[in-house]
């Protein structure tokens, strides 16, 4: 599907804060490579990523933490072009999904 997927207007860029991107993707062994490869290839900065299957396992949910000063508009557009990405939602403020995980990422 080339048509623009369920998309939301990008919130204004915030140089200090981080943004959280919520993706719904087809669940198969190559999908993480597609997402991570896109970020590295296009020099987009990914700070954190979480992925788990949802529902009956045909789809996965991916949460990505990105720096607020990234090219948010380009990141969302390029992700939406991926065949396996069903939807991409950019959350306007720091989303609690990563905050809740903080205790697992303590230490030096």
């Amino acid at each position: 599907m080339q048509a623009l997927k369920e998309s939301y207007p990008c919130p204004p860029s915030d140089a200090s804060g981080q943004k959280v991107l919520e993706l719904t993707v087809n669940n198969h062994p190559g999908v993480m490579s597609h997402i991570c490869g896109l970020f590295s290839r296009r020099a987009f900065n990914m700070e954190g990523i979480l992925c788990m299957p949802i529902g009956d396992g045909k789809l996965s949910r991916i949460w990505i933490q990105i720096a607020g000063n990234s090219h948010l508009d380009q990141i969302v557009k390029q992700l939406e072009k991926l065949e396996d990405v069903r939807s991409a939602v950019l959350h306007p403020a720091e989303h609690e999904v990563f905050a809740k995980l903080e205790e697992y990422f303590q230490g030096s």
Binding site: Q2, L4, D73, Q74, K77, Q78, E80, K81
Partner: peptide, 9 residues
């Protein structure tokens, strides 16, 4: 352009 990713790139 038919590719939205090219706009404002």
């Amino acid at each position: 352009d038919i590719d939205p990713g090219e706009i404002n790139k």
